[in-house]
Amino acid sequence: MWSVLRSLWLVLMHMFKPRFTVQYPDEKPYLAPRYRGRIILSRDPDGEERCVACHLCAIACPVDCISLQATEDEHGRRYPEWFRINFSRCIFCGLCEEACPTYAIQLTPDIEMGEYNRQNLVYEKENLLISGTGKYPGYNFWRVAGVKIKDKDKGEAEREAPPADLHTLMP
């Protein structure tokens, strides 16, 4: 009997406690910078696409929602011809971001992507590509990779020694 009265009183006293509800559309909840929301493709500081079309994200994806077609520009730089993420399948696990060797694919703290038409959840490359660098401002994959591209020969990358001349390399 005492416990009944006590619980009545305790519940009544909750009248004066703050409410936990966040009134969502009016009052946005705080999403951490590393929140796993809408996926984007970022660019390097030079404004070029970071994605090298290695397909690692597509392989890592547990629900197979990423598909892309690799191609090369005239200087031998790989990039995706098209890049497609089906967000109606995506489970926002972030494995694609972990798999990405060039920081190209990133998850952002944006969760408001509701659509009336399911087809609209299939994002193409122009929907995914942003003009900025995302979470890694200084990083430029092609400037540290030892691959020859348009304006960078082999051995000219950051912290890279010039290539050894094989013909002078005697034991």
Partner: peptide
């Protein structure tokens, strides 16, 4: 009920 359960 919401008031006593800290909801709206």
């Amino acid at each position: 009920l919401a008031l006593w359960q800290d909801r709206y």
